[in-house]
Design a protein around this nucleic acid. Structure first.
Length: 261
DNA sequence: ATGGCAGTACTATACTGA
């Protein structure tokens, strides 16, 4: 069983990359972020053709998440509001960032965590608040689903070794102590970064800025993650980053991360 | 210190991303 996460930065622009990668990687589940498409325009037929079921939760222009699966998923739920009361969710589901479904008893949670923009922005406050609500959301899921796989674009590098150049990171979005603390607070529910089960050293990245020839210089960040509950963490036999799609023409700025059981 | 690149909505340039 292989489960992958990939921020594609527009599923319509990246459609051929994704269908090609599904065919060559043969993952069982692919979690997509930044689909940037309303549900009525999601390119479902292209995935049916290569043998995948699609579940999507999108909006015009921004955000958007989807699950692609070889076999049908059970209990697919969209947004925080499927699990949490409106008093906690507020207007957070206006941005489509959360979708979950169950495969072989594994509850897969696919997240597109807010970027946060600048440290003095409302978006940064929004990101920290969103992570607080995420904790409540996952805590609620854990009451009925002991096997949780939480993956996606977290827009947070948890350790300095996850950044090509961590100098000055305290004042950089995706690397501030407040963001790291907010994510660690979520992980205290009992979730562990499965990439670190297999790889201790730094220099492994999942995102490279389009600008400044960042990919050529390997000036990247590791911000796409798979966090697992203990029993799943034990069962994992590999976790790797596939840099190949980032080398293609007109690539996403992120590349897939795959966990295998 | 700043901007750089890319996608979307819209048709020139603004917004967003990270």
């Amino acid at each position: 069983m292989k489960i992958a996460t990939w921020n594609v930065n527009s599923i319509r622009t990246r459609l051929a990359h994704v269908t090609d990668w599904l065919t060559s990687s043969s993952v069982d589940v692919l979690c997509l972020q930044e689909t940037k498409v309303p549900d009525d325009l999601f390119p479902q037929a292209a995935f049916t053709e290569v043998g995948y079921h699609s579940y999507f939760y999108g909006q015009k222009s921004y955000n958007g998440v989807a699950l692609l699966s070889r076999s049908p998923l059970e209990k697919v739920q969209m947004g925080f509001g499927a699990v949490l009361p409106e008093s906690l969710v507020g207007d957070l589901d206006e941005q489509k960032r959360v979708i979950t479904g169950v495969i072989d008893g594994i509850q897969v949670v696919n997240l597109y965590v807010p970027n946060g923009s600048a440290l003095d922005s409302d978006k940064y406050v929004y990101k920290l608040h969103w992570l607080k609500v995420l904790r409540e959301y996952l805590q609620t899921l854990l009451e009925t689903s002991p096997s949780l796989l939480v993956c996606g674009d977290f827009n947070i590098a948890l350790e300095d070794i996850d950044i090509h150049n961590p100098k000055g990171r305290e004042k950089q979005v995706m690397a501030t102590d407040a963001e790291r603390d907010a994510l660690r607070n979520v992980l205290e529910l009992g979730l562990s970064d499965v990439f670190r089960k297999f790889t201790a050293e730094g220099g492994h990245f999942s995102w490279w800025d389009y600008r400044s020839a960042a990919f050529r210089r390997d000036a990247g960040w590791r911000i796409d993650h798979h966090y697992l509950t203990p029993e799943l963490y034990q069962r994992a036999i590999a976790c790797r980053i596939d840099k190949e799609p980032r080398k293609l023409e007109q690539p996403s700025d992120h590349t897939p991360v795959i966990v295998e059981f």
